[in-house]
Write a protein that binds this DNA or RNA. Structure first.
Lengths: 431, 431
DNA sequence: ACAGTTTCCCGTAAATGC
DNA sequence: TGCATTTACGGGAAACTG
């Protein structure tokens, strides 16, 4: 008769975190003619202790509340519990309940709502339960918990099978893909097209030892590591969702991120394109990483591909991805302009003072293996002050005023042919 | 008879945060011959309610504990309360106690310890109190709270004057400076020299309308904003302590950061030095910012100074400061190598796809005013792949193998006039 | 309206448990 | 011992409250 739902982490309902409050709204689906008294509803967690767990929780906050009229619409009764927060009761009695699955994120719990309605002298006991919920204690568990919710609701219409993960069923691959696309559209505002879904499908079904029947096991989705990797498919995908949401949301929504392309497909796509054509792809080896791959031609006309070392959250926090695309450069050491900093006051050679603090980060000089571990082009951030000097039309000193004289002086000193200090080389011919 | 002390935030004792646990250790300074029974000590906060506040706190956790033998040394009795956590009791009765200071960080509280000792048939009540403590609810209040602790202990020997901040006394400037230096040495491992202290003294005493008597008011230290700034002296200094601790600790400890120098002094120091001589200075206008200033000469021999836009925590998290010093470059727009990314697959001009997402960050082209708001040289991070190409000794193609052919191709395409001689293997002629 | 203050809660690190 | 899980708490931001 009622319709429970419970957001906690926005867009990740049915996952509850201990000590973090959540909200549940309940609507009475039958209409009552008499409303002379309060209908009080009580919320309980795991009321019937038949849970697959020896963890016990209670709900703190006002878990008994009266229903009131819905302001909007049809005047039906509802009640919203706010600020409920689950707390774990340390069960000193180590009576291991049902053994079941070992991960807490595969442990299903249930929230019950009870009430009594006295109607025409009749006393009616009402009770309803939420869909299974997963209880976690730290956001780090959220990805796996959410996977459980997805898998459950994808696989069964059962509203209360708390032992579901004792023996989780397989899911139809095409249904799963639909859910994944829906995940993207609800979480980051744009779903996945068929090319992207095909790539994910391939990734999910490699090493599918048997059953090529379009079914996928829970283990393949969320338990077993991807071949050669130290993480599961789902963790990999969640890291990408997170990356998109936090760092490249508008680009994603605009559809400029192809994202899910295999390295092989990538080459097929790029090989006939103009040199300088590139695409954006999520890293398959780094969690939450994005790279760009571009094509060019070597002097003998051979087509070549280059992928930048993937950018992750940390780097993108320092420099937005669009800016990286705008400003990315490949330069030769000889053409790097001189560093204007030479002596720490009063006269300590810079490297003498700071040399031991330089990070091993491969700036300036490329790594021993020119391409990184995965064939990526190494890339670093360099602090630069860039000056525009428009040489197409000669200018008088006064015309240069928009550029401050002192900066101009820096340029003169370090970049002009008549350099005083040890110049590395003459500047490469511009253009 | 006892000796209380209480670390919570390491190195910021006497500041307690609600709901965050702390530890207190108590030692009995008299020796007892008989120890046949347990001496239980009770910890209370603001036991005598004569506090300058209507905030009420209680201590949660085991606040009654028995003393035991000290394992080390002389077998004296002690007790350590761990996991105590202060909680605020919302006093619904709005009976504003003592009016006093308005800031909670100027509200002094006190922790009391009580016990009873039965010795030779005599019952002795013992009680001792902590030095005044400040209760905060968020780390954002810690700097001001710690300032209160410093000022109190600098100004008085009174062990319990909880109304101290109703009318805080002035402090002797030289004593304060000593404390500041001690702050640096205890918090970031290196104190301040006299030059640095002189700069701070000047900063503290500008606009010192009257009393040039070497006394400084609490307000000047921690209440009034610095002239023309939106923060107090202390907040400015704390931001620097924080910056040092988190991003440039080893450089600070080595003494390579002059840090506290006025812009005027800076020029005096640098003007006779070799071009390329620089020093590191904390920004006076940006909270927690550090800049470097270098000297060079314009072509007509005029001495010029340049200061980089200060780096703050966010930027230093992306690029360590030592690396910034190592890699900083000033380049001209004309000499910037081409960006290899031109068309988003299949053939969308890059700027068409991403142009609207570029940040307004002034990369590539300098700002309208060539030097920023405060006369700083603007500076940005640029993602770069750098390739060493050693032209001093020609190499055969096979020597080029350590560099991947594709990277080589990039170089060919975008950078080289005609010929590239590349080698990874040759060590760069060290220094 | 607003500023001081507290609460909320993510996310990393450390502690704990098994 | 190692991994699974919880706890701790800094820090940014929202909510609260006079």
């Amino acid at each position: 008769e009622r319709q429970p739902c419970m957001p906690t982490h926005p867009q990740r309902p049915l996952v509850l975190k201990t000590l973090i409050q959540f909200t549940v709204k309940l609507r009475l689906l039958i209409k009552l003619p008499e409303l002379n008294y309060q209908i009080k509803v009580k919320a309980t967690i795991d009321k019937n202790v038949s849970t697959v767990s020896n963890r016990r929780f209670i709900l703190c906050g006002t878990h008994v509340k009266a229903m009131n009229m819905e302001e909007s619409s049809n005047g039906s009764l509802s009640v919203e519990f706010r600020h409920l927060q689950p707390k774990e009761m340390k069960s000193s009695a180590g009576g291991k309940g049902n053994e079941g699955p070992h991960m807490v994120t595969e442990e299903l719990h249930s929230i019950s709502f009870e009430t009594q309605i006295c109607l025409y002298g009749l006393t009616i006991d009402l009770e309803t339960n939420s869909l299974p919920v997963v209880m976690i204690s730290n956001v780090s568990q959220l990805p796996n918990a959410w996977a459980s919710i997805i898998w459950y609701n994808l696989s069964t219409n059962d509203s209360q099978n708390l032992v579901f993960f004792n023996n989780p069923p397989t899911a139809a691959l095409n249904q799963l893909l639909e859910v994944l696309s829906w995940q993207f559209s609800s979480y980051v505002g744009r779903g996945l097209n068929s090319d992207q879904l095909n790539m994910l499908a391939e990734k999910l079904t490699v090493q599918q030892t048997s059953c090529n029947d379009g079914q996928l096991s829970w283990a393949k989705f969320c338990k077993e590591h991807l071949p050669g990797k130290a993480f599961t498919f789902w963790v990999w995908l969640e890291a990408i969702l997170d990356l998109i949401k936090k760092h490249i949301l508008p680009l994603w929504i605009d559809g400029y991120i192809m994202g899910f392309v295999s390295k092989e497909k990538e080459r097929v796509l790029l090989k006939d394109k103009m040199p300088g054509t590139f695409l954006l792809r999520f890293s398959e080896s780094n969690l939450g990483g994005i790279t760009f791959t571009w094509v060019d031609q070597s002097e003998n006309g051979e087509v070549r591909f280059h992928s930048i070392e993937p950018y992750n959250k940390g780097r993108l926090a320092a420099l937005p991805f669009a800016d990286i695309l705008r400003d990315y450069k490949v330069i030769m050491a000889e053409n790097v302009p001189e560093n204007p900093l030479k002596y720490l006051y009063p006269d300590i050679p810079k490297d003498k003072a700071f040399g031991k603090h330089y990070s091993s980060q491969p700036n300036e000089v490329s790594r021993p293996t020119e391409r990184g571990d995965k064939g990526y082009v190494p890339s670093v951030f360099i602090p630069i002050s860039t000056i525009r000097s428009d040489s197409t039309e000669p200018r008088s000193p006064s015309d240069l005023l928009p550029m401050s004289p002192s900066v101009y002086a820096v340029l003169r000193e370090h970049l002009s042919p008549t350099v005083i200090e040890t110049a590395m080389s003459s500047p490469c011919s511009a253009d």
